[in-house]
Amino acid sequence: FRSERLTAVILPVEGEACIVTPFFEEPSVRQTLGVAADVRVWQEDEDPLKLVAGFLRERKLAERSIGIEETVRYFAVDGLARALPG
């Protein structure tokens, strides 16, 4: 089932992937990863899409086109658009 708690995977064309997940999910995410990834966690009082936006800015990807998987829930797409205006 889909949760309101965002877990996101950012797969840049080049470089390491990034996983953004709730703090309590970090151990299971790390155990099941089959590839190297930058794992970033968020607490219940934080906006996880700010972490996604931060990763994209750090990697200088925020101004480039971003592909989003078609079944991603609207709150995530809308939140990312607000975190990365323009």
Rank of each mutant, 00 (worst) to 15 (best):
K50V: 10
E4C: 10
R30M: 09
G86M: 03
V29Y: 06
G34T: 12
G79N: 09
P48N: 07
E58I: 04
T7P: 05
L84E: 02
D45A: 09
R2E: 14
E44H: 12
A81V: 12
T71H: 13
V72M: 08
L49C: 03
E46T: 04
L33P: 06
V13K: 12
P22M: 03
L6I: 15
E69A: 13
L84V: 01
V13H: 09
K50F: 00
Q31K: 13
T71W: 11
V29K: 04
I66G: 00
A17H: 05
F55I: 12
A36D: 11
R57N: 11
V39Y: 05
A83K: 01
G67A: 15
K60C: 08
L6P: 01
W42D: 01
I66M: 03
I66A: 01
A62K: 05
D47N: 14
R30F: 07
G86E: 11
G15C: 11
I10P: 01
W42L: 03
R57F: 09
R57A: 12
E14W: 03
R82L: 12
G86Q: 08
P48E: 07
V72W: 07
R2V: 13
A8L: 14
V35H: 09
A53K: 02
V13Q: 11
E63I: 02
G86R: 08
L33I: 08
P27E: 10
T21K: 07
A37G: 06
R40F: 08
I19F: 09
T21G: 07
L51Y: 00
V52D: 02
L84D: 01
I19D: 02
D38I: 04
A62S: 15
C18F: 02
G86K: 06
A83P: 00
W42K: 00
E14S: 12
E25D: 15
R59S: 12
E25V: 06
L61S: 07
V13T: 11
R57H: 11
E25S: 15
I66C: 02
V35W: 10
F1P: 11
A17M: 11
V39W: 03
A36I: 03
D38N: 13
E26C: 05
A62P: 01
F24E: 14
S28G: 02
T21C: 15
A17W: 04
V35Q: 08
E14G: 00
V52R: 00
V35F: 15
E16W: 02
D45L: 04
W42V: 02
V29H: 07
A37Q: 06
I10G: 01
E26G: 02
C18A: 13
K50S: 09
R82D: 13
E14H: 10
F75T: 08
E25N: 14
V29F: 03
F24V: 12
G86H: 04
Y74L: 14
A53Q: 02
F1Y: 11
D45E: 13
V52E: 03
P85D: 05
F24G: 05
E4N: 15
A76S: 13
V77G: 03
L61T: 08
E4A: 14
D38A: 07
E69K: 04
R73A: 14
E63F: 06
V29W: 03
E70V: 11
A8T: 10
S65I: 00
E16G: 01
S3K: 10
P48R: 04
E26A: 14
L80R: 07
E44S: 14
T32C: 09
R82G: 07
P22R: 04
G79S: 10
Q31Y: 06
I68G: 00
